[in-house]
Each structure stands twice: as structure tokens, then as C-alpha cells.
Write a protein that binds this DNA or RNA. Sequence first.
DNA 1: TGTACATCAGTGAACGCGCGTTCACTGATGTAC
DNA 2: TGTACATCAGTGAACGCGCGTTCACTGATGTAC
Lengths: 202, 202
Amino acid sequence: MTQSKATRSKNAPYAGDLRRDLMDAAIAVVAKEDPASLSLRAVARGVGVSHAAPKNHFSDKRDLLTAIAIEGFERLGHLFAYASSGTAPDALGRLGRAYIRFSLDHPGYFRVMWRNELLHADAPRLMSAGQEVFDVFVAEVARAQTRGFKPHHDTANLAMALWTSAHGLAQLHLDGPLGDMDPRQIDEVVDGVLAVLLDEVS
Amino acid sequence: MTQSKATRSKNAPYAGDLRRDLMDAAIAVVAKEDPASLSLRAVARGVGVSHAAPKNHFSDKRDLLTAIAIEGFERLGHLFAYASSGTAPDALGRLGRAYIRFSLDHPGYFRVMWRNELLHADAPRLMSAGQEVFDVFVAEVARAQTRGFKPHHDTANLAMALWTSAHGLAQLHLDGPLGDMDPRQIDEVVDGVLAVLLDEVS
DNA sequence: TGTACATCAGTGAACGCGCGTTCACTGATGTAC
DNA sequence: TGTACATCAGTGAACGCGCGTTCACTGATGTAC
């Protein structure tokens, strides 16, 4: 929230970035409950604004969720860029951990990003933001292969195997039967899975 | 539906297994939309029964979804039992394919099974049904190891790596960015991922 | 076999609630002169 | 600098809708005698 409700007179324009605050409120709601049952009225309530106000920024829930998904991919992209920078030999491990950490630290983004039926899945910015993240990942897999990591496997297949595993792990921790683990247990599971996938015999 | 709406007089008892039909109707609804936004009234409508009728069988949505999840794990367990029977050397591949096929053939079950926040996650039958499926899978991984499949890896880690990958693949196909693939493309992706995970260099 | 009664699953009207949507409005801000 | 006007984001009342929940009811079935 960029301002407190109390300081705003009744019909004053919203002194801040309402679009931004609506997104943050929605992200906070989705961090606790499924995006499928999100209501725009609840989002407006979260910001402290009348229920009709969001219409000026998002025509409906799908618009809002799409904006959140785009931002989520962009944030994940930044984390990936950071994790893959430098010449660390365990770049893939760092990407995997970054993916899991992002899903657990930002469930409000993560839960939205993979739910195409709730999004404008064909929105150009969404597609490009998602593609960019995936491209960074595939490039990193290819780079690891040049350094001797499973060089005989098809890069696309290898990337898909690693990505799906990280994604499944994230989903099972967020909403599934692994959801009652504490951070320490989660780290152990992630370490164990990475040990197998990245072939460091443990 | 075990009977047609037309043959039943106004206040006649439901001539069939209403509990069964309610579950089937809910599964059909969830196959198309998220369980989080399922309504009991929509389920009753699907069966052609008054909206208060379900109360005699399920006290609320959580009860209904829990029953569906239990049945889903039981069905998956049967598929696993079938896939792992015999002495085929590619048992793990068959389990993986069974998992993916189940998720795509029965999204109404699959979408519910991993959403603990919508279920009575501590229901004994749910926990045991899920555990049983997982146990079968882990046992099969251990058996593969005795035959030379990645024998130096920790069995639990190895099982988790394989399971999360299958699960992520299923989720990404069901609701995510891989959702627009046709069956042929899906098979190719599954084959590619299995080739990497099961170490048959492709 | 027949009658009286209890049971019990399903009915349908009624309720209050939160939702999305519409719309006349308000009042702060920006622009023209 | 001051006045008049246009713009435009946010307000709040109103609407119809589907939801979960309650409850008196109905009528088919099962049981007692």
C-alpha cells in the first residue's frame, strides 16, 4: 500500500499507484488461497478502495492475473540471471534451488504463472517473459553439457527432465502432500533430488 | 447417472447410488474447471437432483473432494499394480507413463488429489491410499536398482527425483504452458524425459 | 394378507451473503484564456 | 494571477445471480402386529 486509508478524503484520487497496489493485494490473497477463487472485490478490499475502482486498471480477473503472471516470470527471470551469472560449476543446481525458493517465497506469483486457463495465455508479454526464462534455463543446460554434464543426451530432453522435476517438487510442496514439511526438510529433499539429477552420487 | 431424470416421480427416493453419481458429476465438473471453484449446487445439477440432496451424503465440498481424492489414489494404485506386474525390465518407464496417462485421462481425479488445502488431508483412508501408491513406486525403484539402475543413489532420493519429474510433467500438461500439445507431442516429450531419467541415451 | 406407523432420502421455498456489473455522482487535477 | 471548464479516477447505491444453509414437507419403503 502506498498510503494509509485514513489520510485520503472521500473522493480524492488515489494518491499512489493503485494498479501496483491492486497487484500486490491480489498476490497476497493468492499466497493464501487458490487464484481460481480470487474475487476482484476481495482485492479492492485489500487495498482499501471501493469495489468498482479496479475496473479502471483491470477489466477483469483474467487481466489482473495475467499481469501478475508476467511480473512473476520477470522476477523469476531476474533470479535466474543472478543464479547463472559467474562461472560457478554448479550453475544448474543454483537454478534449481532458485526455482524452488521462488515458488515457496512467492506462492502468490507461482500459483498464477502455470494456470493458463485463468490467464490470457496468448498475451505476447506473457509468452515472451515465459519463453525468456525457459531459454535461459535451456542455455544453461547446454553450457553444462559442454562441460561434461550428460553430454550425450538431447539438450531439450535433458532440460525438460530437470525443469519438470523442479516444477513437480515445487507444486508438491506448495499445495500437495509435501506441504507440511519445514524448511529444513524441504532443503534435504531438494538436495537429494538434485544429487540424483545432477549425478553427484550421494 | 444410474437413471434418467424423467423416469423418477417427484418425491421418489433416488433410484440408484446417489453418492456414486454425485462423485461422478463432481469429477466431470473438475475435469473442466478447478476444484477450488466447484460448487455443490453445480454437482447436484449435474445429477439432476435438488441442491439439498447432496447433504445426505457429503456434509460439504471438502468431504466430497476427499472421497474423490481417495478413489483417485486407489485407481492410480490399480494402474501402478498393473504396470509393475510381470518382469518387464522397463517397469519404471511403465509406471511413469501410467502416471502421465492417468493425469491426462482423469483430470477430474488428478486435479483434486494433490490439493491438500481443499481436502481432509489427515483422513486416514486418504493418507493410506496415497502412501500405498508411493510405496509401490519406491519398491519398484528399489527393485530396478537391484537390477543395475543407478544402484549408487539413495533410493528415496532417486524415487523422489523420478516422481517429481512425472508430477511436474503432468501438471504442466494439464494446466500449464504445455497444455496446448496434442497427444503425439505429449508422447514425444514423455519419451524424451524418460530417456534422460532412465538413462537410455537417445 | 392387511393395516398402522416409523423411518428417511429427497424436495423446494426461503434466508442472507458475496460476487460482477452498471451508473449517476463527486471532487481533485489539468488546461485554456 | 485568476476564472471557467474539461477530464477522469474513484465512490457508493443498486441490480440480478449463484452460492451454502435451513427447514417444513412429501411420499416411498421397511417394520410391527
